[in-house]
Design a protein around this nucleic acid. Sequence first.
DNA 1: AAGTGGTCTAGACCACCAT
DNA 2: TGGTGGTCTAGACCACTTC
Lengths: 252, 252
Amino acid sequence: MVTNKVAPAERGVPAYKVLAEKLRTDIEAGVYSVGRKMPTESVLQSVHNVSRHTVREALQILLSDGLIYRVQGSGTYVSGRQQDTRGRYVRSIGSLDEIIVWPDTNTEVIEPFTVVVEPSIASRLELPYIEVSKATVRRSFEGIPFVLTRHYVEPDLGAKLAAEGVPSVGEGTVIGAAEKLLTKPIMGARQEITAMNAPEYEAELIGCQAGDAILLIERLYYDADGKFVEFTSSHFNPRRYSYRMELRRRGA
Amino acid sequence: MVTNKVAPAERGVPAYKVLAEKLRTDIEAGVYSVGRKMPTESVLQSVHNVSRHTVREALQILLSDGLIYRVQGSGTYVSGRQQDTRGRYVRSIGSLDEIIVWPDTNTEVIEPFTVVVEPSIASRLELPYIEVSKATVRRSFEGIPFVLTRHYVEPDLGAKLAAEGVPSVGEGTVIGAAEKLLTKPIMGARQEITAMNAPEYEAELIGCQAGDAILLIERLYYDADGKFVEFTSSHFNPRRYSYRMELRRRGA
DNA sequence: AAGTGGTCTAGACCACCAT
DNA sequence: TGGTGGTCTAGACCACTTC
C-alpha cells in the first residue's frame, strides 16, 4: 500500500496552492523572464517533491490566471501583461471577489431598507411571497456620483441589515455585510448588462440628462446552496464609469 | 502493468470533454433540475466507465462555466437558470473561448478589410505607424441583425485575412481566422463595456432609432507574448442582445 | 457512520515538437 | 529519437456534510 501523504507545506493549505503561489512569486520577481521557458513538469516534480498531478494543478492556476501558456511537445512559457488605468473610474471585474470590495468610493443612502411589494423582484429571488426589502444608494468617486443602485433582499435579511445600519455612509458593500449574517458563503452572481435611456429620476441623481444612454447592470447573488440572496439593479453614468474586464483563455 | 487505455468515445476528442458535453446537454435539457443534485462522482464513474479523475476533469469544465457548483461533503448541484430567450440573443460569456465561437448567428460583410488611416486605433494596437486594416460586419440571429462590429488589425494581417476571404458570409469569427495565421496563440482580451446613444448610421443597421441607448463593447485581443492582435468595436441593439455572465468566487 | 467532494501519489500511454 | 505536455487509470487519505 503506497500512500505517501506529503504533509502540506503550510497549515491546511493544499500543496498545489503553495506551489502555485511560489511559482507566481518567482514569475513576478522575474526569475523566469517573459516569453522564456519555465521548468518542465518533471523538474518541478522532483524539485518540490510532489507528484506530477500536483504540479499540473499548480500550473493550471497560473494558466487560468493568464500568467503562463503551454505548448504541447515544447514547454511552458511565461506570458505576462501589464496593467493601465486613468481618467474615469475604471473597474476591472473578472470574479466576485473584486465586487465585494469596492475601494475609493463613497456610499450615500438615498433610502434605507424598507419592505415593499414587488412581485417581479420577489420572483427573481425565488421567494414564496411578493414582499421584498429594498434600499437605494448612490456611489461617488472623488465626490462625483456615478451610479444609483437598488438593493433587494428578503424582508428578514433586510430587517437585520437595517438594524446594523446597512447600507451606511462610507465604505463597504451591502452584499459584503449580508454575507456576515449568513451561514453559507456567497458563491457567485449572475450578471446581465444592457443599455437604456435614462429616466428623469435616475438621470438627475447620476448627473446626466433624461434620455441619455446609461448602463444598466443587474446582478443576482447566490450562496453555496444556490439560494438567491440579493438582487441589485444599478444605473451607471457611462461618462463617469466604465466596465472593464479581462477575458482569458481557458484550457486549450 | 495495468494500463487500461479507454479509447475516447469520439475521434480524437478526449473522454473528459465528451463527458462534459454529455452532462452539459443533459443539464440544458433539464434532466437534472435546477438547484437539485447531480449524480455523484462515484456514480458518473461507473455509469460512464471512466476513472474518477476523468469525471472530475469533466465537472471542472462545467464548474468554470458556472453550470454547476459543488459543496464538499454534500454534493454537486445544478446552478443553471432558465433563459428568457424570447427573441433576444442572450449570450453568457465568461472566457475567451466562448467568444471565438459564436454559434447560431450569421455574418454579413458590410465592408471587407481595407487599409485606412486611423491614428487612434493604430495607437491602441500599439503599432508604430498610423495605418490599420479595417473591416465592418453585421451579425444576425434568426435573420434579425443585432450587432455591427468594426474589426481592426495591422495592415499585413488584414491583407492575409482578405486573401482568405475573411470576414466571410456565414459562420466563423475574425479572431478565430486570425489566430490560424499567427505563431503565438491568442491569450486573452481586454474588454470595455459602455452605453451610448445610437448614431444614425449604426441605428439603421441594427434596427433601432437614432438616439436610442445601445451597448458599445470594445475588445483588444492579445497573444501569448502580450502583443495586441486585433481591436474590435461593437454596437449592440440591447433589445435584441443581452450580455450575460457568471461571476464566481475564486479562491475560497 | 456513511457518503461526498478535495487532495495526492504512482505509473502508464499518447500526441506533438525539437533535434 | 528523446523530451514535453495531454490524457487516463487505480487507489489512497482527508475534510466536511448529513443522517
